[in-house]
């Protein structure tokens, strides 16, 4: 498919998918809001919204894949997609940066101040007498009760290995794609998403362990908050990434992608590497240090 029917920038004429997407978001957000406010029906509205969004994503991507396979996209369109994906990932980086920022702020500023360091002597003396700054902590109010911190060298280490190797297999798969080695491509791509799902599974095990045996919960003060929010959002991204890898794998099976036209593959690969890098920072700053 290296021949483009036409070297003009492809501009679609009208599309109902964005409108469907907006409708889905409306249901999702209003449903979630009313549910959080205590109306049980809100939950179903939210699910309906989610369903609409999945429907929209399927339809929208199907259209784009169709157009791509139909040779409608020239090199410039391809470039737009690439740059768009790049900046999308950048926005995700900033989203995670926000939570990492919260972690660093809590560890290096808030908790020490509560412990009376710097010019916060009176904070400690008047309000939190006896509290000493440590990490991990659930704060001077012992919010959520006694708990144990997550040890870095059990499951988390295995997960690190899983995710890092998945990045390696993905890269080899990419090279295989460019070299036209289909078998190697399909098998390694499959390994990649299987490793991804294994990661998600193990994280589930880890969460159960935390809740049932360590009494480590989302409600365990600032440690629990940062731990679960960071790993949770990351886990969500791994799940989405693994699903996207699976879709890409099916497309490979259908014979999509060529050595020089495989933007979707690359986009997912970037995304996967991004998820990987976030994990490494997580492992270092949340589990280890």
């Amino acid at each position: 498919m290296t021949t483009y029917s036409d070297d003009r920038y492809y501009i679609p004429h009208g599309s109902h998918w964005p409108a469907v997407g907006s409708l889905g978001l409306l249901f999702l957000m209003v449903g979630a809001s009313t549910w959080l406010n205590g109306a049980a029906t809100g939950f179903y509205v939210m699910l309906a919204g989610l369903a609409i969004i999945i429907f929209m994503l399927t339809g929208w991507f199907a259209t784009v894949i169709g157009e791509s396979e139909g040779g409608r996209y020239n090199a410039q369109v391809d470039k737009s997609f690439r740059q768009g994906m790049f900046w999308f990932i950048f926005s995700e980086v900033m989203f995670f940066a926000c939570f990492f920022g919260a972690l660093f702020y809590a560890r290096n500023m808030a908790v020490p101040w509560l412990g009376g360091s710097g010019n916060s002597f009176f904070t400690n003396m008047l309000l939190w007498e006896g509290f000493e700054s440590t990490w991990p902590t659930n704060g001077p109010g012992n919010i959520g009760g006694e708990y144990e911190a997550m040890a870095p060298f059990g499951l988390p280490l295995i997960n690190t290995v899983l995710l890092l190797s998945s990045s390696v297999t993905l890269t080899i798969a990419h090279h295989a794609l460019m070299a036209g080695k289909r078998v190697q491509l399909t098998s390694l791509l499959a390994t990649t998403f299987l490793l991804g799902f294994a990661f998600v599974y193990l994280q589930g095990v880890e969460y159960i362990e935390a809740y049932q045996h360590l009494n480590l919960k989302l409600t365990s003060g600032i440690y629990g908050s940062t731990f679960f929010m960071l790993t949770g959002f990351h886990g969500m991204h791994v799940t989405i990434g693994a699903i996207m890898l699976t879709i890409i794998w099916f497309r490979v099976l259908k014979g999509h992608f060529t050595a020089d036209n495989h933007f979707a593959f690359e986009a997912v690969a970037w995304y996967w590497h991004f998820v990987d890098v976030v994990w490494v920072s997580l492992y270092v700053f949340v589990y280890w240090m």
Binding site: A110, W113, G139, G141, I143, T219, G221, I222, S225
Partner: peptide, 12 residues
């Protein structure tokens, strides 16, 4: 129940 902005939980 997170404690990001709750001093008792170690937040601020």
């Amino acid at each position: 129940g997170t404690s990001f902005f709750l001093a008792a939980g170690g937040g601020d």
